[in-house]
Structures are given as structure tokens and as C-alpha cells.
């Protein structure tokens, strides 16, 4: 069905607004989704902000992160572990995946991306798009060969979630609000990501270089900053965050460990980065919240039967993109001229 609005729509919304429990549930879900979106998109925005490189391989990094994490978790977690131990293992896996993907990102930057900085931006899109295809097909090959998920690369590989997600992260209720502890955990990780990147940009030496490079690359070079190495570090950090996002998506029931995850992640990430304004981290945070909340509202509308259209969330996300580009092409906090060329 195309979106059909129930005549009782207004009444339903009133019901929602007058029920504090529902409102809080939607809000918590919105924040949890926003956290995931933030983790997905922030690597992309870091890389774009400094290097003007639209990294199409971003989604593939997340997908690899998810697969590696799933494999590690299945290997490390045993049924007898308590939930605290599982969480520790999870954090360990998060760090390992971050390091692995950062290393992979470094290799790509040094051997491939670096060659194309002088070219028009379209060539970086092309290169990273080629990397995506190759990475995706390579994972497909491995999945079929190792017979992971019965060799079905396009279906949700649910066993990492089923077998390793501690039941303590399941449903929970506080006062009259229903939520899952996993959502709280995701929100925590999202806040940590935001604070971590903020601290990286504002409290570290490389963050200073990054901001200087964004502001005026020529001047930064003239002042003796090794912009080349800064590029490498930022690409590595961005790739690492993309991989870490995959680790979290592995547990989330609304996402899945599958090869098409690469594209499923990439397109919303683009939307958030563009809506927030290319190269603005503040914009990315705000856009993640916006998209997360609207996504949660869409889910609520569907589950309560206000709107009977299964693709609603995706539809909303891309509608936000189009509307934003029509009204304010630079995004919420975008800088004039950024991304205009090519």
C-alpha cells in the first residue's frame, strides 16, 4: 500500500502525546537509533570534513566490522559467562575491531586514496565505490566458502545476536516506561562516541591539526603541519569508527550481519552527513538525533497501525534528505562552498 492516513490519525497522535509511557518509549528508541546513526555517520563526516573525500567504502567497513565482531563473539563468548563478562568481551571486541579496521583504512589511504587527492572529487567517489564493490564481493566469497549462515550472504545472520546477547540487555521497565537495556547501552555508546570525537577534535594535537586543515589546508602546511600524515590518521580513525559501529549493529535486532548491510548503512549515513552539513561534526550529531527521532516515530506509527506501509522509515529518511536539499542545500550547519565542486 502507498502511505494511507487513517482518519483516526489525529486521535492516535493525541493518544501518544497524552500517554507519558508511550512518549518516553518513543523518545528512548529515538535516542537509541540516533546513537547508532551517529556511530555510522561520524566516521564519514570526519573523513569528508578534512579531506573532501566522499568515502563510499564506509558502509563496507561497517559490514566488515560486523562480520569480524560476530565471528569473534561467537568464538569467545560461552553460555556459562555472566553478563558482566560478556560486556567486557564485547568491549574488547569493539577495541579489536576498531584497531583492525583502522589498520585497513590506513592501508587503503596510503596505497590508493592518496594517489587521487589532486584529482576532481568524482574520482575519489569512483575509487571508494570500486573498493566497496570489491570488499562486498570478497566478503560474499568468504561467506559462501566458509558456509557462514549456510552460505546465505544476503540474509540476516542472527546467531551472533541470539547466542551472545546477554538476557540482562533485554526488556525492562522503569515506572511506566518500557524499553530494553540494549537501547540504554546503545545510547551510552552514542554519547561516548560524540564526546570522544569532540575530545579528539578539540583536546588532542591531531584534532588541532584536523581543524587547522579544514580551515585552511595551505596555511596549515605553511605552518609546518604534516597534513599528509593527518589525512592518514583521520582516514584510519574514520574507518575504525565505521568498523566499531558494525560491532554495535551486530547486537541490534533492527539491523543485521549481512553483506547488503554495507549499502543499508551507507545511504542513511550519507543522508545524515548531508542533512547535518558536509564537514560539520555538530551538524552530524543534530542530524542523527533528527533522523533517529523521525525513524522512531515512523516505527511507532507503523506498530500502532496508524500507517500501513512497511518501508516507512527508509521513505522518511530519504524524504528528509530531499526536503533538506531543497530548502537548505548546505545542510543544517554546512559551510558555504564545501562539496560544491565536481
Amino acid at each position: 500500500m502507498i502511505p494511507t492516513v487513517d482518519p483516526l490519525f489525529v486521535g492516535d497522535v493525541l493518544d501518544l502525546l497524552t500517554s507519558p509511557g508511550d512518549v518516553s518509549s518513543v523518545l528512548i528508541e529515538g535516542f537509541a537509533k540516533a546513537s547508532l546513526y551517529l556511530m555510522i555517520a561520524s566516521g564519514l563526516t570526519l573523513i569528508f570534513g578534512l579531506m573532501d573525500v566522499i568515502n563510499f567504502a564506509h558502509g563496507a567497513f561497517t559490514m566488515y566490522g560486523a562480520y569480524i565482531a560476530a565471528g569473534l563473539m561467537l568464538g569467545l563468548v560461552t553460555a556459562s559467562m555472566g553478563w558482566a563478562t560478556v560486556m567486557l568481551v564485547f568491549l574488547f571486541v569493539l577495541v579489536v575491531v576498531f584497531a583492525l579496521l583502522a589498520a585497513l583504512g590506513t592501508i587503503f589511504e596510503v596505497t590508493l586514496v592518496r594517489k587521487l587527492y589532486e584529482y576532481p572529487p568524482i574520482y575519489q567517489i569512483l575509487l571508494t565505490f570500486g573498493i566497496t564493490i570489491t570488499m562486498e564481493q570478497f566478503m560474499r566469497m568468504i561467506v559462501e566458502f566458509r558456509d557462514i549462515n549456510n552460505g546465505q550472504w544476503n540474509l540476516d545472520w542472527a546467531s551472533p545476536r541470539r547466542q551472545t546477547l546477554p538476557s540482562e540487555l533485554g526488556d525492562s521497565e522503569l515506572l511506566f516506561v518500557e524499553f530494553t537495556n540494549l537501547q540504554l547501552f546503545e545510547i551510552l555508546l552514542g554519547v561516548l562516541t560524540a564526546v570522544g570525537i569532540w575530545a579528539f577534535l578539540n583536546r588532542t594535537r591531531y584534532g588541532l591539526f584536523v581543524r587547522a586543515g579544514v580551515e585552511d589546508e595551505e596555511m596549515a602546511k605553511a605552518l609546518g603541519i604534516n597534513v599528509q600524515r593527518t589525512f592518514t590518521v583521520v582516514f584510519a580513525v574514520g574507518s575504525g569508527i565505521a568498523g566499531a559501529a558494525g560491532v554495535v549493529l551486530m547486537w541490534d535486532p533492527l539491523w543485521s550481519v549481512s553483506v547488503p548491510l554495507a549499502l543499508d548503512v551507507l545511504l542513511p549515513a550519507f543522508v545524515i552527513v548531508i542533512v547535518g552539513g558536509l564537514g560539520s561534526f555538530k551538524g552530524t550529531v543534530v542530524a542523527s538525533l533528527l533522523v533517529g527521532m523521525i525513524d522512531a516515530l515512523g516505527t511507532w506509527a507503523f506498530t500502532t497501525g496508524v500507517i500501513e506501509f512497511t518501508g516507512l522509515e527508509e521513505l522518511m529518511i530519504f524524504s528528509i534528505l530531499v526536503v533538506m536539499l531543497i530548502l537548505q542545500p548546505r545542510g543544517l550547519f554546512g559551510v558555504e562552498g564545501q562539496g560544491d565542486h565536481g
Binding site: L267, F270, L321, L325, P329, G342
Partner: peptide, 11 residues
């Protein structure tokens, strides 16, 4: 223009 054009057509 540029990236924005590509993105709106994609959207």
C-alpha cells in the same frame, strides 16, 4: 551542484 546534485537525484 556537485555532491549535492548527486545526492538529491539519489535521494
Amino acid at each position: 551542484s556537485g555532491v549535492y546534485f548527486a545526492m538529491i537525484t539519489l535521494g
